[in-house]
Nucleic acid binder design. Structure first.
Ligand SMILES: [Mn+2]
Ligand SMILES: [Mn+2]
Ligand SMILES: [Mn+2]
Ligand SMILES: [Mn+2]
Lengths: 248, 248
DNA sequence: AGTAGAAGTTAGGCATACCGAAACCATACT
DNA sequence: AGTATGGTTTCGGTATGCCTAACTTCTACT
């Protein structure tokens, strides 16, 4: 009689490239619904189109994405789960670097981009505990919980807000460190109360008031800046929790 | 007239494999003088002999090692410098994990082995500052300073000590986590006062007394254990600083 | 000195992850 | 309906870093 081993638990050692691909695919649909195309993926990853075609085939073979030739790339449940765990890693690391090692919010992204692939689950858990299980990173991006649930703030791009609207800045795109330093300098930070005053004519700057009462200051924001800021109407703040998937 | 660019400062992006090879070559001569051979390198890195031959050629091309066929491998000044900076990274990380994230000393090695290749110089500097510029890691191994200087404790392998000798444990080999847990359990730690009482006959255990006065306890140590412990005679402790090389 | 076996190197391959150039397809515009 | 165009894939190739198997060199023992 032969003893049958229990099916191996698939250690699937995903490479850091795979992790980055999946993370970028996820990020593309975090604040809107259209799935990402090959070329967009290539641009965001800084690789050639042909490299993406190849890798997407591998991701499909591994069951991480759905894809048919010439159409967009979508994560499977398994891919979504891997992506969420990478996003969690990335954002916890960013938060840790700011909170514990005195990084400024424009320095953390690149460091986290590498560390996310190197730290162990234990490391993540210890950081999370030490930070008190934070739900947002230094840029206001939601940190998925260990079980895969994500609390998305009910936020709108400031560039799309009509005059009169007000609320708080609950997210700031972290992609341009330059921009983050500019905002820092102007003392425009996360959770600042903000109000859209109006727009200069002929597609001009958006005029906003930051702060309230005597401390209020007015700014002319370019399109680029107002597209990087997300505003939640006062009161709605904590956002809604939606479980996107379940992490393994 | 043509402006000549200053010679590029050689960004030499060393791979993590190269970093590990160089680190292992360095470690081999840290506590004795014989240079490492191909086979020893292969064993320590867990790769095939042929892989080492190939890689050593590349290291030589990059000016990191001296080597002629069929003989041992030695670091050049440049290789030494790279090795020291990797050792510094590794040991600072181990110290940080224990001190700041509650790791136990048997858990840190593997985590540091990966992180050492991923963290930035900034990260290292912040950690170093936060820890108060430590000079020893959790296992008593000296942490090279940023300038490449190393303070080596004047220590001897306990297995080679004659009865009657005493001192303090200033280094414990961190290669076997099992052993570290055993020592932890027996409450034998770094800086514990220790005295060699004698040796059981026929190549038997080494009998040592740990602690002093009423708290003293006697142990029978196997060869394996006594080879992992290094003892400094009382008083000599701080060790001698020798600048091994200068880091870039 | 002669030689067997250990130590080390070379040769031929594989996997991953890139690239540029060429071929292909879908569609949108005449 | 016919075709230009841009997005996408395929093809051939490069660089790392690893492997096994075959071969070479060194050394230590007879
Ligand atoms: Mn990354
Ligand atoms: Mn962020
Ligand atoms: Mn390593
Ligand atoms: Mn150590």
């Amino acid at each position: 009689m032969v003893t049958v081993k229990p099916a191996a638990v698939k250690p699937t050692p995903t490479s850091s490239s795979v992790e980055d691909y999946v993370k970028v695919i996820y990020a593309f649909t975090e604040w809107q619904d259209k799935p990402i195309t090959s070329t967009q993926l290539a641009t965001r990853l800084g690789v050639a189109n042909s490299s993406v075609s190849e890798m997407v085939r591998k991701l499909k073979d591994q069951g991480l994405v759905d894809h048919q030739p010439y159409s967009a790339v979508r994560l499977t449940a398994e891919g979504q789960s891997l992506a969420l765990s990478m996003v969690r890693r990335h954002r916890l690391l960013e938060t840790y670097l700011v909170q514990e090692l005195g990084y400024s919010w424009d320095e953390v992204h690149d460091e986290a981009e590498l560390l996310e692939h190197a730290v162990s689950d234990t490391f993540i858990e210890r950081m999370d505990a030490k930070l008190g299980r934070p739900s947002r990173d230094p840029h206001g991006d939601p940190i998925p919980a260990a079980d895969g649930s994500v609390t998305m703030p009910a936020a709108h791009r400031m560039s799309q807000l009509d005059p009169g609207h007000s609320g708080r800045i609950t997210r700031i795109s972290d992609h341009d460190p330059e921009l983050l330093r500019y905002l820092d300098q102007q003392r425009i930070g996360l959770d600042a109360p903000i109000r859209v005053q109006g727009r200069k004519p002929f597609g001009g700057a958006l005029v906003v008031r930051v702060g309230t009462g005597p401390a209020a200051r007015d700014f002319d924001l370019t399109e680029e800046v107002s597209e990087a800021l997300w505003v939640s109407p006062e009161g709605t703040h904590p956002g809604c929790t939606l479980t996107r998937t379940t992490l393994t």
